[in-house]
Every structure is written in structure tokens, then in C-alpha cells.
């Protein structure tokens, strides 16, 4: 009973959110935009969290700056562009689509296609009718049969 409760509770668990009530914007629409932008920005200190989730102080100040910029009328793209100009593409949690990231974007699909190609070749081969024995093979088979029968008799 106890364990099943813990299990069920763990299913409900979601990523922690670090945004504190005092940080939030009064306008819910603007706050929603701030959350959206924050979920695409990587915390530069902790490296594998969004600034929305991170408790690092620099992440908090980045969240506040995002909200300041939104209040000042900047678009989401403009904020992402500013952060990228300061910290590089690293700060974007979702890599941009550009030549150096093609492998990242296409890699999995390419591997899947290669696998499908290899699998189809193998399966095609398995169900193919065996080709007829050549004259050489037939005589070798006959010789082997003879030997075996001779041995048994």
C-alpha cells in the first residue's frame, strides 16, 4: 500500500520550478511568455537545467532580466537573440537549425533509415529460395553421400 502510493506519487512528479512568486509578473499573459522563454534558456552555471528550473543565482537574474525585457516590450525572439549574443548558442536549450547542427537534427533519422535498409536486406535474403547447386557442388554432395552410405553398410 505504502509503496504503491509512493509509485503513484512519483508518476505525478514533474520538473521542479524555481520561479518564486515575488519574481512573477502581474500580467498572466506576460508571465506565461516569460515562462516560455525561460524554458528555452539554459542555466549557464548548472548546464543541464533551464533557467526556469534552476535555483542558481545567475539563473534567477536571467529570469528577472527576461521579465524586464518582456515588460519593456521586447519580443521572445529578441530576448533569445540577446541572450545568444552574450552566451553563444550554448544558452539555447534547443539547438538552432544550422550546418553545424545538421548531424544532430538528421542523425537519428539517418540511423533509422540505415537500420531499416540493413534489416530489409537481411530479411529479403532469408526468405529467398536457395539457389540450385552447381555441378561441382552436386558431385561433391554425391561423393559425400556415397562415403556415408559406405560407412553405414
Amino acid at each position: 500500500m505504502k509503496w504503491s502510493t509512493i509509485f503513484l506519487a512519483s508518476l505525478l512528479a514533474t520538473a521542479a520550478v524555481a520561479v518564486e512568486p515575488s519574481e512573477m509578473l502581474k500580467d498572466p499573459a506576460l508571465e506565461a511568455r516569460a515562462r516560455e522563454v525561460s524554458k528555452h534558456l539554459r542555466c549557464v552555471q548548472c548546464q543541464n537545467e533551464t533557467i526556469d528550473e534552476s535555483n542558481a543565482e545567475i539563473a534567477r537574474d536571467m529570469r528577472l532580466l527576461v521579465r524586464e525585457r518582456i515588460t519593456a516590450g521586447d519580443s521572445n525572439d529578441a530576448i533569445m537573440a540577446y541572450m545568444t549574443s552574450r552566451y553563444g548558442d550554448y544558452v539555447r536549450l534547443q539547438p538552432r537549425f544550422m550546418p553545424v547542427t545538421y548531424l544532430l537534427w538528421f542523425g537519428p533519422a539517418v540511423v533509422l533509415l540505415l537500420g531499416a535498409w540493413a534489416a530489409s536486406r537481411r530479411m529479403g535474403r532469408r526468405y529467398k529460395e536457395p539457389s540450385a547447386l552447381s555441378a561441382e557442388e552436386q558431385s561433391a554432395l554425391a561423393a559425400a553421400d556415397d562415403r556415408q552410405e559406405g560407412g553405414r553398410a
Partner: peptide, 13 residues
Amino acid sequence: PRSHAAIGFGVVA
């Protein structure tokens, strides 16, 4: 105090 210059300089730590 609120990291405006630090973020402007891309400071991490």
C-alpha cells in the same frame, strides 16, 4: 546587484 552587467559580459561565475 542584479547581474545586468554580468549577463551583458556573458559572465558565468
